[in-house]
């Protein structure tokens, strides 16, 4: 029996453990990741088993965590940083965009920035300010970084190991509202490479491009749409940078209609860039303008009204109506 039913949080924990067993250069650094096991318990038990040199409770300083990881990577280590919550990554922003993303190019390929920055991201958990944000567009915008986001336990188990093994730096965005959802994890059959998008549900009417916590929401919307005789094809990006455009374009050529769904605010976003790129690639296949369903151009709102901010089934179905009923 090689499969096990795990939460996504536990699957990442197991993936980290696997990577640490495989490669003694892999180490973890972050706040409260040792004895406490991280605020989401993703690193639970790892300090006990691998010691304080490989699982480091860092001083409370995000720029320090990422900046030190850069130096460790320069010496051949493979650090995995944990940023406690999305909204706390910004003190490290300078290190990420100026050092993590650029050291490889600056050194003519000598320094491998083989590090991972894990960020629990997105909202929907009733949290206070800075605990529900979607910063992925900043990182996707930055050349030199890869941005991955698993959406289920099986993918998470394999994608974290792939991210750690990568010689490129990976911003690993974990949709925290899905941490406790369980799935079968097959430890012998690797998931597809992170850079391949995956069709989670096939359909012929509308291509729904999504990632993160919204994948599940889109699947629920697809189920509801089926009742109205509409077949949505839901594609989970898995890698936000790079985007697997061949898979997306093949779907759009079939459906002719696209909506892009994510929690992030829409302006200068990943979703906007995907819409623009698909317009260029698939212009003659498109039968309606590409529609985005996203958060709004506001700070993430107080949790009591986050439901109205987040893309939900109704808003996705509304977008489906708009692309289906569009007449040129």
């Amino acid at each position: 029996m090689t499969t096990e039913n795990l939460t996504m949080a536990k699957a990442i924990n197991e993936g980290l453990r696997g990577a640490m067993e495989k490669d003694s250069k892999v180490m973890l650094i972050g706040e409260d990741i040792g004895k406490l096991g991280g605020v989401f318990r993703v690193t639970d038990g790892l300090q006990k088993d691998f010691g304080e040199l490989r699982v480091v409770d860092a001083p409370l300083a995000e720029s320090g965590i990422v900046g030190a990881a850069v130096g460790l990577a320069m010496r051949g280590y493979r650090p995995v940083c944990e940023i406690q919550f999305d909204g706390f990554v910004y003190p490290a922003f300078d290190q990420i965009v100026s050092q993590v993303a650029k050291q490889h190019a600056r050194s003519g390929g000598v320094y491998k920035m083989a590090l991972v920055i894990r960020i629990p991201f997105e909202g929907g958990i009733g949290a206070i300010e800075h605990h529900s944000e979607s910063p992925e567009s900043y990182f996707a915008h930055t050349a030199g970084l890869r941005v991955y986001s698993p959406t289920n336990a099986y993918d998470a188990y394999w994608m974290i190991q792939e991210a750690i093994a990568s010689d490129d730096p990976v911003i690993f965005c974990e949709p925290k509202s899905r941490y406790w959802e369980k799935a079968e994890v097959d430890r012998e059959t690797p998931a597809r490479p992170a850079t391949e998008a995956q069709i989670r549900r096939a359909g012929s009417d509308v291509t729904v491009v999504t990632y993160g916590a919204s994948v599940k929401t889109c699947l629920r919307a697809a189920q509801a749409a089926e009742g109205e005789g509409r077949q949505l094809e839901v594609i989970d990006l898995r890698s936000i940078s790079p985007v697997d455009y061949p898979t997306l374009a093949a779907s759009v050529e079939k459906t002719g209609r696209v909506i892009v769904v994510s929690e992030a605010p829409p302006v200068a976003s990943v979703a906007g860039d995907i819409a623009a790129t698909l317009s260029e690639m698939c212009f003659y296949s498109l039968r309606a303008p590409i529609v985005r369903v996203s958060g709004y151009h506001v700070p993430y709102p107080p949790s009591r009204i986050e439901e109205e901010y987040l893309p939900n089934v109704d808003r996705i179905l509304d977008a489906v109506d708009r692309v289906m009923e569009f007449e040129s």
């Binding site: 709004y296 151009h297 506001v298 700070p299 709102p301 107080p302 009591r304 009204i305 109205e308 901010y309």
Partner: peptide, 27 residues
């Protein structure tokens, strides 16, 4: 009371902003 959903658009900017108006209309 819970805030009104539309209040998420309040005070984001001090001056009128078309993106805010668009979001408000959508909601």
């Amino acid at each position: 009371p819970d805030p009104a959903p539309l209040s998420m658009f309040d005070h984001v900017y001090a001056e009128p902003h078309p993106f805010i108006e668009a979001g408000r209309r959508e909601l």
